[in-house]
Simulated scan of single mutants.
Amino acid sequence: MNIIVSGGGTGGHIYPALALIREIQKESKDVNFLYIGTEKGLESNLVVREGIPFKSIHITGFKRSLSFENVKTISRFIRGVRKSRKILKEFEADVVIGTGGYVCGPVVYAASKLGIPTIIHEQNSVPGLTNKFLSRYVDRIAVCFEEAKAFFPEKKVVLTGNPRASEVLNQDGKKGRASVGLSERQPVVLIVGGSRGARPINEAVLKSLSMLGQKPYQILYVTGDVHYDEVKKEVDLIGNPKNVVIKPFIHNMPEILAGVDLTVARAGATTLAELTSLGIPSILIPSPYVTNNHQEKNARALSDHHAAKVVLEQDLSGQKLVEEIDRILMDQDKLLEMKKAAKNLGIPDAAGRLYKLMKDLVNQR
Rank of each mutant, 00 (worst) to 15 (best):
F151N: 13
G176Q: 07
V168I: 14
H294A: 06
G61M: 06
F151C: 06
I201K: 01
K233R: 14
E39F: 07
A342L: 13
K356G: 03
L206S: 11
K149A: 13
V244H: 10
V192N: 14
G115F: 12
A258K: 12
R353F: 01
S208Y: 01
G268S: 12
I3Y: 01
G239C: 09
E203Y: 02
R300K: 11
K340W: 02
G9I: 04
Q364D: 10
D261I: 04
A258T: 08
A19N: 07
V245M: 13
G100L: 01
I285L: 06
F68P: 08
L169D: 08
Q314I: 05
D225H: 01
H294T: 13
G173P: 10
D139S: 05
S287T: 09
N45R: 06
G101H: 07
E323M: 03
A301H: 07
A93L: 01
V260A: 11
S208I: 00
L20I: 07
P153H: 10
I238E: 06
L272P: 01
N298Y: 02
P216E: 14
V31Y: 05
G11V: 04
N292V: 05
R49V: 00
G197F: 09
N45A: 01
D349E: 15
V362S: 01
R185W: 13
P53N: 05
N292Q: 10
L284Q: 09
